[in-house]
């Protein structure tokens, strides 16, 4: 198990390095002169030279990459060009919006989807099953930002139960902050819940056809106990994969959803930075988000090993 973790960790680090290289390449090499891109074509040569110096653009590429990487690891994300503050501060005040939002959405989708999946699988072929599966088809087809608009229209504009957007900050208390995260989280969670419940159902149904289920039945266990004690844990393996992927979707989803609800989160930060061509912010925040996705997938791998003893002993 220890060897497995260490080896996975090595893969994770390589993937992160490769990803950071891609981000660096896309933002620093592809545009030609990043300073010119950031300042626009109307900028004076002086201003451009100034910025080039500030960004050390005259250093060779590998030096720039390594400096950036070492700084990132040390926690120095550079200074935002548009806000003129350290990117680290920007990230710090945004992360406390985005991470709770993504976690809330993931929790909502999981606590709805897994019971629905189990319920429909245990009633396979009944009218309840068919109706629920039809409903999930709609759930998958609904774009989350459109659903968000609908939620705003109904609960914020018409019923006035929750604010239509904005974020009061955690210092205003837990409840007002949660209130403003609730609609965005629901909007993010709905399509994910629909997908996850279908995956849970089909993974369970698939598992129920395995030979060892028949062995368990031949032991005299009733169908329900077989489902909970034998099928579920095996079926969780594909479900975990999807949950790992969903975290990436949720993170990306915040870019749009935070825009719909005017939430000051990472997604909105990176989106605005892209529009303003603040490449320093973009480079750091994108790298952070990608690192988060890789880290979550690493956790999913560990969960795999927990769920499947075959992986634990296999060393590759």
């Amino acid at each position: 198990m220890f060897a497995y973790v260490v080896r996975r960790l090595a893969t994770v680090l390589t993937t992160m390095l490769a990803a950071s290289l891609i981000v660096f390449a896309v933002l620093q090499i592809v545009p030609g002169d990043p300073a010119r891109l950031m300042l626009g074509i109307n900028a004076t040569q002086d201003a451009v030279d100034n910025l080039r110096e500030q960004l050390n653009l005259d250093d060779p590429l590998h030096v720039r990459y390594l400096t950036w990487l070492v700084d990132m690891v040390r926690g120095d994300f550079g200074n935002s060009y548009t806000y003129s503050v350290p990117v680290r501060e920007l990230v710090a005040e945004r992360i406390i919006v985005s991470v709770p939002l993504a976690l809330l959405a993931l929790t909502l989708s999981t606590i709805v989807a897994i019971p629905v999946g189990i319920f429909t699988a245990s009633r396979h072929g009944t009218a309840t099953d068919t109706a629920t599966m039809a409903a999930t088809q709609f759930g998958i087809a609904i774009p989350n930002f459109w659903f968000a608009l609908l939620l705003v229209y109904v609960f914020a504009i018409t019923l006035r139960w929750v604010p239509a957007g904005g974020f009061p900050g955690w210092h205003e208390g837990l409840w007002p902050a949660l209130q403003s995260l609730l609609l965005p989280a629901i909007a993010l969670a709905l399509p994910q819940a629909a997908i996850l419940s279908r995956i849970t159902r089909s993974a369970l149904l698939e598992t129920l056809h395995e030979d060892y289920i028949r062995t368990a039945r031949a032991k005299g266990l009733p169908a329900r106990r077989v489902l909970w004690h034998h099928a579920l844990r095996n079926a969780m393996i594909p479900v975990l994969t999807i949950m790992g992927l969903q975290f990436a979707f949720l993170l990306a989803g915040t870019i749009i959803i935070e825009n719909v609800f005017y939430l000051p989160g990472l997604g909105r930060l990176v989106f605005q930075a892209i529009q303003q061509l603040d490449l320093i912010v973009v480079q750091s925040v994108v790298t952070l988000l990608v690192a988060a996705v890789i880290a979550v997938n690493f956790l999913v791998d560990l969960a795999y090993a927990w769920a499947d003893p075959r992986l634990r002993s296999r060393t590759r």
Partner: peptide, 20 residues
């Protein structure tokens, strides 16, 4: 009755046991 008074052994031993 199953597993208590009647036991059963199947053909395919490789897949007859729960892997987890």
């Amino acid at each position: 009755l199953r597993g208590d008074d009647i036991g059963m052994v199947f053909q395919e031993p490789m897949t007859a046991l729960n892997p987890v």
